[in-house]
Design a binder for these strands. Structure first.
Lengths: 237, 237
DNA sequence: AAGTGGTCTAGACCACCCG
DNA sequence: GGGTGGTCTAGACCACTTT
């Protein structure tokens, strides 16, 4: 692995273990460079990842202060699979696969995935349970060309795990939209909806690191169980 | 201004003007270094900001491809003021200041702002109108010590503009939580609520670049007018 | 004055993609 | 094999904070 990433992980682990108090300063970049026997720029690359992930804040002239990242229980933002979420939040979660089929992408889906021609897509419908309550209805559409060999077993476990670990693909980026809509009959059928007339809908497109869109997802959440957490920095624009 | 930021802005403007087609490649880093008479590392810093902001995707061995960032109308995510949002989205928006007062932070607010002692805070209540409909109810709490001299006029215009441009402070980072809750009487009184029983509530804490929390906000949205857009990358974790 | 992080340089080697 | 981006180096100067 790259030197800066191993240093990042070592520092991230130490921070999460509480090696330094919140508001304490990390050793200076020069000290870290000496300690790890590397150049300052390499240390800076490692520290920048810590900054991105909300573990430290750098202050010019002072140093790098430890941030109370517990406050954020943050990795919910960004691109995360349901399984990753459930694991990091220590939830008792399970998945029910309602449908797994191969279809032709219609024109709307072609536009979302920026396809210039027809293509086969997997349609996957899954219900997510947390503590034995059906709270999320996920409808995924995945390019068959990019994600071949999907099985019900994979869908039940984690499609992302399959994509990244079995197929060796690398997720690049994604964008999502969150809105609130009226619940449909599907929602009432498949989720434990009680009296809620609204659902929170997250529509997202995910791209590989070669900028190819390969997945469109509509994720429908019971409103009383929905929670989205985000950590952000002010960037140049 | 720093060389890499001027290069970033020049390239960002060119991309937004459509100088290159989506899926085209930017000139190579070496070419850009020659063209701007600078080193490759400086070019790379500029390109990394383009990547962060979803304008390009770098592909090893190929180059930097232009991403269709229109698809994201993206700067809604991250840390943005209502005024910035309204401006970039070209909305006909206005603000009504309902309350501006100075209070003592209660224990709950002290915890949110990570204060170790009592402190004065501004309490600002504002209703946001878009196209003459009252759609957002914002309740802000700002440390008076950090943000002195707040006036009704500033609150009506943009508190962030005052903080960054008049006071010369620099926003560092923030975190937010989005949930759906039952509407309160306040919501019904102050927003054009029709029959919606739910509101989308965004609770956020914002920090300066010295890692001092200075603002807590509760932003309550009419569900049918709520939309949150997010652009994210997969980062090491 | 000394120490910190922020920027910038000129060079090097590597892994990867493509013709 | 030539070009691309990814990593790493050793050094320099700067703006800023603290002592």
């Amino acid at each position: 692995m790259q030197k800066y990433l191993t240093i990042y992980h070592e520092l991230a682990d130490k921070i999460k273990e509480g090696t330094w108090e919140v508001d304490d300063l990390l050793p200076s970049e020069n000290d870290l460079a000496d300690h790890y026997g590397t150049s300052r720029e390499t240390i800076r690359k490692a520290l920048n990842v810590l900054v991105q992930n909300g573990l430290i804040q750098k202050i010019r002239g002072k140093g790098s202060v430890i941030i109370d990242s517990d406050k954020f229980d943050f990795p919910v933002s960004g691109i995360r699979s349901f399984k990753e979420l459930a694991d990091t939040m220590h939830l008792e979660a399970s998945t029910i696969v309602k449908e797994l089929s191969l279809e032709q992408a219609d024109s709307q889906l072609q536009r979302k995935l920026q396809l210039h021609e027809a293509a086969d897509v997997w349609k996957v419908t899954r219900v997510r349970q947390i503590a034995d309550e059906k709270v999320i209805l996920d409808k995924d559409f995945l390019l068959e060309k990019t994600v071949p060999g999907l099985t019900e077993d994979i869908c039940k476990h984690s499609i992302y795990h399959y994509i990244e670990n079995e197929l060796g693909l690398v997720i690049g980026f994604g964008h999502k939209e969150i809105v609130v809509e009226e619940a449909t009959e599907d929602d009432y059928d498949l989720l434990h909806m009680d009296n809620h007339m609204n659902v929170v809908v997250i529509r997202s497109v995910v791209y590989l690191d070669d900028a190819q869109a390969f997945q469109y997802t509509e994720s429908r959440h019971r409103p009383d169980k929905f929670r989205f957490v985000d950590f952000a920095r002010r960037t140049p624009n």
